[in-house]
Design a protein around this nucleic acid. Structure first.
Ligand SMILES: [Mn+2]
Ligand SMILES: [Mn+2]
Ligand SMILES: [Mn+2]
Ligand SMILES: [Mn+2]
Lengths: 223, 223
DNA sequence: ATATGTATTTAGGTAAATCTAAAAAATTAA
DNA sequence: TTAATTTTTTAGATTTACCTAAATACATAT
């Protein structure tokens, strides 16, 4: 079945909001979609009648198995297109989201599966988010900025976005390099600095600025 | 300004119909767009108020200069995407039109200009139709038999006149297909065979018989 | 010039996706 | 537990892009 861009955007937004709380509110959805709660209620009724979600008035909303499948297909398209834009067309990772927001609604399944092959079956998009495979399975590895790494989870440094000698000097001083395994012990509210733990080394802290330029991969818990 | 997919489809259809007759009828448009004459009349009024076309009831319709610019932008996108689908994703030339019908409505100008560069600024789509450049200029395309292609001029294969499996086998062996870019390096007087150059491939020669069945398009020197 | 046929427009509706304003339900605070 | 606040739904419009049926304009043939 084929759904309108608008419906697809709703499904996707619900999917993402469900990662945090397992039941999604009308207001949260309205905010995520930059629309009005009344419009959301209207749409939820339509999506419910198509069995894409469970919805009882005032009780919030949850995707059905079918809805989940659709969401993953859209996310797959979004992230593959983002990868294409960055890796093949040379866009910066920060400018691709908006364009992918449109491209994700192109319907051909054959197109997206061939694009996947053409790109070499990438596992993550330019932001480090995992790309579902053609069966809708999310790979386990997550690549994110060190700033967003959950505390007490081991991760490997995979890239640094700033290559200035000043930054590289600081990295070397802290014995951080591509491939280094580390974890964030805690964050300090005052200056958002991070305490880092590395195997067989004393803990040390790094600044928010430094962490913002470090990207890591870690094994996501398959909750 | 940005227009709906529906409006873009109207503009494009009018542009194409104008190639035959310089004023386009309501019925012709209805047929081209698989819609009803009454719907066409409605839309023509909207497009007129946006100054994209000249329209007087019962008198037919004609694009304004502004409308023409829009049409050429859409056609550019359509044909570049078709080229991408065939050359990069390995689609057959007969299956790409429908997908391009959707992709042509993706709005980012930067995307299409980068796609153009990524594809090597092709001059014709997989069907041999010319691709407007980013200023909306249609290249002047000369279509001739490969036998007559001047030496050292890049050309795109647009059709093959003999569809026998024997011939197609030989074409495939030489990596020649519709849309392939090539040029003739030299001709040998003895058997009139041609030495062919293709991007990132060693030179090779083909027989006069084979060349006689290949038709190519190349950019004629303008001005 | 009148009649006939075709092309086109008008009139009146529908469905999708939005909106605002108001009502109702649920939650939180006193 | 009642009142206040927030969340959500309902009611009623709007816009876009369609539709059918009917009216009108144009073209042509007698
Ligand atoms: Mn994105
Ligand atoms: Mn989107
Ligand atoms: Mn189209
Ligand atoms: Mn084409």
């Amino acid at each position: 079945m084929k759904y309108s861009s608008s419906k697809e955007n709703y499904i996707k937004a619900i999917f993402h909001l469900q990662q945090d709380e397992d039941v999604v509110s009308t207001n949260a959805l309205a905010k995520a979609l930059s629309t009005r709660p009344a419009s959301v209620t209207d749409m939820l009724k339509k999506l419910k009648s198509q069995k894409l979600l469970q919805y009882q008035p005032y009780k919030g909303v949850k995707l059905t198995a079918e809805g989940n499948v659709i969401a993953l297909q859209i996310i797959r398209k979004h992230r593959l297109w983002e990868y294409f834009l960055v890796e093949k067309l040379g866009f910066g990772w920060e400018e691709v989201h908006e364009i992918a927001e449109e491209l994700e609604h192109i319907s051909s399944k054959k197109l997206i599966d061939r694009l996947d092959i053409f790109l070499g079956n990438p596992k993550t998009d330019p932001h480090g988010d995992p790309i579902p495979d053609s069966q809708g399975r999310m790979p386990l590895i997550r690549q994110i900025c060190l700033l967003e790494l959950p505390e007490n989870i081991q991760a490997d440094v995979i890239s640094v976005s700033n290559q200035s000698t000043a930054m590289l000097e600081l990295l070397r001083h802290n014995h951080i390099a591509i491939g280094t395994r580390l974890e964030v012990r805690r964050r300090f509210a005052f200056d958002h600095s991070l305490e880092i733990r590395m195997p067989s080394q004393p803990f040390f802290t790094i600044s928010e600025q430094l962490a913002a330029n470090i990207y890591v991969a870690f094994e996501a818990d398959s909750k």
